[in-house]
């Protein structure tokens, strides 16, 4: 399948004051002053700072090796380890994805931090994270719709740097995309620039499902996604 590309404006994403408060640990609407005001200021700025781009490429020639916990995509071996192997074992194809909020929001956060405005700098950092996650949610939802129309399902998304999958393997993952795709480059230590970028794989097949993240299987007890998940769970109770 051809490379799919997406561009979003900030106002197309669901990034609100409530969501940012929640990401920071507060119940929505419960963050003390001056946080709500500062969040609003950063969100207003974010309109002009973002260059939100992403995309994915689907590969059919894949194999999941449960013995050595590897994933083989179009002849390239990924050492994704046990948790991800288990989550993807029933897939028949995979979508390799990348997405970025662009450099503007990260630079804005760094500038604020450099000027000593750590609170607003932190909020800008959180907003950047939420922008790229929200954009990737939309891309994933679009992929899911397309696959469902063909009678297929998708898994959750899994990224280098999590569940034991080495961030160094991002070099291999990016080999599936044109150079500087979406303006993302890799540092010598395989980290993405702009910082507010995500990459990874999503399983596709008749027998796969989105199960939610399997935090009980992961020993990363302080993971930001675990805390987010538990906050959401607590909110529902």
């Amino acid at each position: 399948m051809e490379l799919q590309e997406y561009n979003y404006r900030f106002d197309e994403l669901e990034v609100s004051t409530d969501i940012i408060e929640k990401f920071m640990g507060y119940q929505p609407g419960q963050a003390p002053e001056p946080m709500p005001q500062l969040i609003r200021e950063v969100l207003n700025q974010a309109h002009d700072l973002c260059d939100i781009r992403g995309g994915y490429v689907i590969k059919q020639d894949i194999a999941v090796n449960r013995d050595d916990k590897t994933l083989h995509i179009h002849g390239v071996e990924f050492d994704v380890k046990k948790i991800i192997t288990n989550q993807l074992k029933k897939m028949d194809a995979t979508a390799l994805f990348v997405c970025t909020a662009g450099p503007g929001i990260s630079n804005y956060s760094k500038e604020l931090m450099h000027e000593g405005d750590f609170i607003k700098g932190y909020i800008a950092d959180v907003v950047g994270s939420e922008i790229v996650e929200s954009a990737m949610d939309k891309i994933q939802a679009d992929l899911e719709n397309q696959m469902e129309s063909q009678g297929l399902h998708i898994t959750d998304r899994y990224s280098p740097g999590y569940c034991g999958w080495s961030v160094g393997e991002q070099q291999k993952l990016f080999s599936f995309f044109p150079q500087d795709f979406c303006g993302i480059t890799l540092t010598a230590s395989s980290l993405m620039q702009p910082i507010k970028s995500v990459s990874g794989v999503i399983g596709i097949g008749e027998n796969v499902r989105r199960k939610g993240y399997v935090c009980n299987l992961c020993d990363m007890v302080n993971c930001i996604y675990r805390e987010k998940k538990e906050t959401k769970k607590a909110d529902r109770c």
């Binding site: 920071m24 640990g25 963050a31 003390p32 946080m35 000593g116 750590f118 609170i119 932190y122 909020i123």
Partner: peptide, 11 residues
Amino acid sequence: VFVPQVLMSAK
């Protein structure tokens, strides 16, 4: 309290 309040205190 959460990170922003610690940052306020640090400031």
